[in-house]
Design a protein around this nucleic acid. Structure first.
Length: 303
DNA sequence: CACGCCTCCTGTGCGC
DNA sequence: TGCGCACAGGAGGCGT
C-alpha cells in the first residue's frame, strides 16, 4: 500500500533514471477498468523532473527539442514544463526498468531475471520506452493505479490531487491550522487522516501508526488542540522515519530496483492486532474504521 | 457540503 | 487436495 514514504522512496530512485530522458514510445493495457487517460501524450517529451505530491508522482515534461536526444537538464532555454505525467500507484503499483535488450536493469538477491520478465508481461500495465532504449514498466496487478497526462499544473481533472491538503513534511503543514481543521470535521479522526484534505499522503498504515503514537482513539470525533498538535507531530515523525527506511513493505510494495522497504519491522500498530502494545503490554485490538482495517491499543488510545 | 457506504480489482490465505 | 470465500485498501461515485 504505497503511501507517502513509499512513493517518496520510489521517486528518489526514479528521478535519476528518468530526468533528462525523452519518452519515445508508450504502450498501455487497454483493459476497460484501467484508469489511464491521455497516456500517449507523453511521447516526444523529455522528463525534466520527477516530483511528488501526497501519494502522486508528477513528472514535469518538456517537448523534445527537434534533432536532439535527451537534453541534459538546464541546457535548454528557460521554457517551463508543458505538461505533467501524473502517476498514482494505487495499492499494488510499482516500477521496474528493463535495459535495451529487455533484461531487468536491477535484480535483488535470489530474483530470477526470466521470471521477472514473465511477471512484468503478466502484470505490466504500462510501458514507457526511453530514448536510450530502456523501458520503464508500470506493474500493477490490481489495476488500482492511475496514469494520465495533463497540462502543466492543470489538476482539475484529478479532483483529489487538486484538493490535496498540505505536504506533511513541509512548513505548509501547520499545527494550528491542522487542529482547527480537525475540530471542524465531524468524521472519526482516522477517516479525516485518510481523506487527503487535511494532510496529504497518509494512508492506512501511517494513520494507525500516528494515532498510536499520539495516543488517540481512531474513532474519536473530538480531538482537542493539544491532542491535535500531538497528532501533527506524530504524523511527521512516522512518515519521516519510514522514509529513512525506504518505506514499509508488507506485500506488494517495492522500489524501482526491486528492493523492499525496511520499515515493516518498526510498526507499532498496523498489523499488530493481538500482539502486546509496545508501550503498555495490553493486547492490541483490531476493528474497522472508515471501511479500513484498524489496529489500536484499547488502553493507550482511549475514546 | 460533507459524511459514509459501496465498488472497482486480483492474489493470498484460510476453513471446510 | 481442492474449492470457495473473505480479505487486503486508495479513491471515485453516489446516496443521505
Amino acid at each position: 500500500m504505497p503511501e507517502l514514504p513509499e512513493v517518496e522512496s520510489v521517486r528518489r530512485q526514479l528521478a535519476p533514471e528518468l530526468e533528462g530522458h525523452a519518452v519515445v514510445d508508450v504502450w498501455w493495457d487497454p483493459h476497460p477498468q484501467q484508469r489511464f487517460s491521455a497516456v500517449d501524450r507523453v511521447v516526444g517529451h523529455v522528463v525534466h523532473a520527477v516530483r511528488r505530491r501526497g501519494k502522486y508522482l508528477l513528472c514535469d515534461l518538456r517537448e523534445q527539442a527537434p534533432g536532439h536526444g535527451g537534453d541534459p537538464i538546464g541546457t535548454d532555454r528557460d521554457e517551463g514544463p508543458c505538461c505533467e505525467l501524473v502517476l498514482h500507484l494505487g495499492m499494488t503499483g510499482s516500477f521496474r526498468l528493463l535495459d535495451p535488450s529487455g533484461r531487468p536493469q536491477d535484480l535483488v538477491d535470489g530474483e530470477d531475471a526470466e521470471a521477472l520478465v514473465v511477471d512484468l508481461g503478466t502484470y505490466g500495465r504500462a510501458r514507457f520506452t526511453l530514448d536510450d532504449g530502456r523501458t520503464l514498466v508500470f506493474r500493477d496487478p490490481r489495476r488500482f493505479g492511475r496514469v494520465t497526462v495533463v497540462d502543466a499544473g492543470d489538476h482539475a481533472a484529478i479532483p483529489t490531487l487538486a484538493a490535496l491538503g498540505p505536504e506533511p513534511l513541509s512548513d505548509d503543514f501547520d499545527p494550528g491550522a491542522f487542529a482547527t481543521a480537525l475540530a471542524r470535521t465531524g468524521a472519526p479522526v482516522k477517516a479525516a487522516l485518510l481523506g487527503q484534505r487535511l494532510v496529504a499522503g497518509v494512508g492506512n498504515i501511517y494513520a494507525d501508526e500516528a494515532l498510536w503514537r499520539a495516543r488517540i482513539h481512531p474513532m474519536s470525533r473530538r480531538v482537542g488542540r493539544d491532542r491535535a498538535r500531538a497528532l501533527h507531530a506524530a504524523v511527521r515523525e512516522v512518515l519521516a522515519e519510514s522514509i529513512e527506511r525506504e518505506g514499509t513493505t508488507f506485500r506488494d510494495y517495492q522500489m524501482v530496483n526491486g528492493q523492499s522497504g525496511r520499515n515493516a519491522d518498526f510498526l507499532d500498530a498496523y498489523g499488530q492486532a493481538g500482539l502486546p502494545c509496545r508501550r503498555c503490554g495490553t493486547p492490541m485490538r483490531g476493528t474497522v474504521v472508515a471501511q479500513r482495517g484498524t489496529t489500536y491499543c484499547p488502553r493507550c488510545q482511549r475514546a
